[in-house]
């Protein structure tokens, strides 16, 4: 009797273990494997190959001068004044773009979280810029800033921002604002969508309680809304910062990095080096440097998030 029940126990245990093994090791990978295979072959392997390029001389215009050069590309990078200018430009480009996108996106999300007439149509229309192909929005904004055919310079004169209607993208001092404005236009919907989703997940009981307790609108905002949004804000700001720092298309189409490198950011500099000079080795070295900076940034932000946010 006892041996028999033991046998049953054992077989039950192995079956349980086998099904555990199945659940833990095999089954999830059935669902995951296509994604892993594709990401591995199309992104990770080329990434490693790309990193190895940064230690080589690969110039398509100079096909006989190839091979491993060690850290030469990085040494060149260190003393490349254009790179440091581009780095500083990347900082301002990212900072202003993300600040305005975030503030305007938050405002839009809070408006969309209230009730008003025609809300569905309004929401569909304000989110539209996100769907416009980048190349097209870059051209449209370049057109709008052109004093011959665009209205913006004339409006800016009327508002006293400019002394006379000229193209701000020809002035090295303020050229960066052209792509930044286009980027803000393009990016506000993204922030609005994610923040709206987070806003809608705040339990309405909290607001009711705050109202009963006589909290002011500002108190409600700082004591309920912001703390609840904080995790979402941290993750979206981080992802968007990285995307924007990598985002060369707008700048490339609108100004091409000019005038006098005043709008050249690191990623557009990578593009120029790779496609104008066809110097893949040096372009890869710049890209690795950018990747490294962004990784440090992400680690700091994730650490801050862990410290500050307790949800």
């Amino acid at each position: 009797m006892t041996t028999r029940s033991q046998a049953i126990d054992v077989s039950g245990e192995t079956r349980a273990r086998r099904s555990l093994y199945w659940q833990y090791m095999v089954e999830p990978f059935l669902y995951l494997s296509p994604a892993i295979v594709l990401i591995g072959t199309v992104m990770l392997i080329p990434l490693i190959v790309g990193i190895s390029y940064s230690f080589q001389a690969i110039e398509l215009l100079n096909p006989f001068n190839t091979g491993w050069v060690g850290l030469e590309n990085y040494q060149q990078l260190w003393s490349d004044r254009k790179f440091w200018i581009a780095l500083e430009n990347t900082f301002w480009w990212t900072f202003w773009s993300i600040s305005f996108q975030f503030l305007l996106g938050l405002g839009l999300a809070m408006l969309l979280n209230t009730q008003f007439y025609g809300k569905k149509l309004f929401q569909a229309l304000v989110f539209l810029p996100w769907a416009v192909p980048t190349f097209l929005s870059a051209l449209t904004w370049a057109w709008l800033f052109n004093p011959v055919i665009g209205p913006l310079p004339h409006w800016m004169v009327a508002l006293g921002i400019l002394s006379e209607p000229y193209n701000i993208m020809g002035d090295p001092e303020i050229a960066m604002w052209g792509p930044i404005v286009a980027n803000i236009w393009f990016g506000v919907p993204f922030f609005a969508i994610t923040l709206l989703a987070a806003l809608q997940s705040i339990p309405s009981e909290l607001y009711e309680a705050a109202e009963i307790d006589g909290a002011s609108a500002w108190q409600t905002f700082t004591k309920i809304t912001l703390p609840f949004l904080a995790p979402m804000i941290a993750i979206t700001v981080m992802l968007r910062t990285i995307w924007i720092a990598n985002f060369a298309d707008l700048i490339y189409v609108m100004t091409g990095g000019g005038p006098a490198n005043s709008t050249q950011i690191v990623s557009s500099y990578i593009f120029t080096t790779a496609f104008r000079k066809l110097d893949f080795g040096y372009a890869s070295a710049i890209a690795v440097a950018l990747l490294f900076i962004l990784l440090i940034y992400a680690v700091i932000l994730l650490w801050l998030r862990k410290k500050l946010v307790k949800i």
Binding site: I242, A283, A287, L291, L295
Partner: peptide, 28 residues
């Protein structure tokens, strides 16, 4: 599912969102 290597795979996916895609254009 909660499975072995889940965190690593998620981390790798996050990393793919971080590096400049321009970097892999030549290898691709």
């Amino acid at each position: 599912f909660d499975f072995g290597g889940k965190k690593i795979i998620i981390a790798v996916m996050l990393i793919t969102q971080m590096f400049p895609l321009l970097m892999i254009i030549a290898p691709i």
